[in-house]
Simulated assay, not measured.
Amino acid sequence: MKIALVHDYLTQRGGAERVFELLCKRYPQADIFTSLYNPEKTIDLGERIINTTFLQKIPGAAKYFRLLAPLYFPAFRSLNLQDYDLIISSSTSFAKAVQKNPQALHICFCHNVTRFLWDTQTYLREYGDYRYFAPLIEKIFQLMRNVDLKYSQEPDLYIANSTVVARRIQKIYHKQAIVVNYPIDTSNFNFSDQKDEYYLASARMISYKRLDVIVEAFNWLGWHLLISGDGPEQARLKSKALSNIEFVGHVSDARRKDLFAQAKSIIVAALEDYGLVPVEANASGTPVIAYGAGGVLDTQIPGKTGVFFKRQSPESLQVALLEARGISWNYENIRNHAVNNFSEQAFFSKVEQIIEQTCGVRQSFI
């Protein structure tokens, strides 16, 4: 069986790219396709040949890849994948548009619907100049929405990373999706049942992460909070924080492992489509205190691996923090929850069962 792996663009390293990296490792004989490739900025694919589109020839395209949005659909339609029996796409936007022969199977790991088209205001609010070009952008985006809907019908099967994303796929693309929560490499995290007296928030400092809610809650409580990460909100958050809150900036992988393992709890105030940080926390044996919506509803067990707060407000977070303080956590069970449900082994066991059932043949090529 000849396999093609397809990703939107390999110009950065985020959660979607980490999942694609796992797929590339799992299927070492598969051919890799993407629109743009910048090896210095993305996942390590070793000596694998990366097949790109005509966009790769545009000077500066890999750096300013977001500006090329209207060109991605024709770029992926131009790829010739007629010789492949199985196409696995990894997409938040464009890769689902690839063409295949009628006998082939196309499975799309859909990390989200095309967010900038279907949730434009939320996606672009970080860009201050957006409002000046909004009328023109909206006209272009409306045309692109029609194309996105058309090409969303290409995959034979959607796999979503969370229930909330599956619902979005159903609502916007009118396609059913199987939910398979994405994995982490659980061996990359240190386990400790000896917790320190600090809480940890680990996130890029942008507005939707709602670190402002966390800062205000800990200002009132006076408990020790560490915040790792950086971003455009950093100066504003620092100006609000009292002395019990420490900003540690971007940390090494080694220190990040230690911070996760020794934290009393890890705090997540964002509404995430899925969210790897809560799973990473659990892999370290650490409970999570999270806003109870989105992906955490798939990954956390209230009272066992974490505590939810109902509103993105300091008061609601304080209630959850006090509740968590009264729980006798079983840190080993928290770690086992992550290993049993969100390891690579658990992930591929589910994925390959789906492929086998869908293809109707046993995947002996793995």
Rank of each mutant, 00 (worst) to 15 (best):
residue 221 L to G: 03
residue 174 H to P: 00
residue 175 K to N: 09
residue 220 W to K: 13
residue 238 K to I: 11
residue 174 H to A: 12
residue 221 L to Q: 12
residue 193 D to Y: 07
residue 165 V to R: 09
residue 169 I to K: 08
residue 250 H to M: 05
residue 198 Y to Q: 09
residue 161 N to F: 09
residue 249 G to T: 10
residue 203 A to N: 15
residue 255 R to K: 14
residue 174 H to W: 00
residue 197 E to F: 04
residue 218 F to C: 08
residue 241 A to S: 12
residue 159 I to Y: 13
residue 166 A to G: 14
residue 200 L to K: 07
residue 169 I to Q: 10
residue 279 V to C: 09
residue 240 K to H: 11
residue 265 S to Q: 11
residue 179 V to I: 06
residue 173 Y to S: 07
residue 262 Q to A: 06
residue 188 N to P: 00
residue 164 V to H: 03
residue 255 R to V: 00
residue 206 I to S: 09
residue 229 G to D: 10
residue 214 I to C: 09
residue 158 Y to R: 04
residue 242 L to T: 08
residue 178 I to Q: 15
residue 244 N to F: 06
residue 285 G to V: 03
residue 232 P to W: 11
residue 259 L to C: 09
residue 171 K to W: 02
residue 239 S to Q: 15
residue 160 A to H: 11
residue 258 D to Y: 01
residue 193 D to S: 15
residue 170 Q to K: 14
residue 164 V to Q: 08
residue 155 P to R: 13
residue 267 I to K: 05
residue 250 H to A: 06
residue 241 A to E: 08
residue 273 D to C: 05
residue 267 I to T: 06
residue 257 K to A: 14
residue 194 Q to S: 11
residue 247 F to V: 05
residue 172 I to F: 09
residue 260 F to R: 01
residue 250 H to G: 00
residue 165 V to Y: 04
residue 287 P to M: 08
residue 250 H to T: 06
residue 167 R to S: 03
residue 219 N to F: 07
residue 271 L to F: 13
residue 260 F to Y: 15
residue 200 L to P: 04
residue 264 K to Y: 03
residue 248 V to Q: 10
residue 265 S to N: 14
residue 160 A to F: 12
residue 178 I to A: 07
residue 175 K to S: 14
residue 257 K to L: 03
residue 231 G to W: 12
residue 198 Y to V: 02
residue 252 S to E: 10
residue 206 I to Q: 11
residue 191 F to M: 03
residue 210 R to C: 10
residue 197 E to V: 04
residue 275 G to L: 06
residue 193 D to F: 04
residue 218 F to I: 01
residue 265 S to D: 08
residue 212 D to S: 12
residue 261 A to P: 00
residue 186 T to P: 01
residue 262 Q to L: 13
residue 177 A to S: 14
residue 216 E to V: 00
residue 209 K to R: 15
residue 236 R to K: 15
residue 279 V to E: 02
residue 221 L to I: 06
residue 227 I to G: 08
residue 205 M to E: 13
residue 282 N to C: 15
residue 160 A to C: 11
residue 179 V to K: 11
residue 182 Y to V: 11
residue 213 V to N: 09
residue 218 F to R: 04
residue 220 W to N: 08
residue 172 I to D: 10
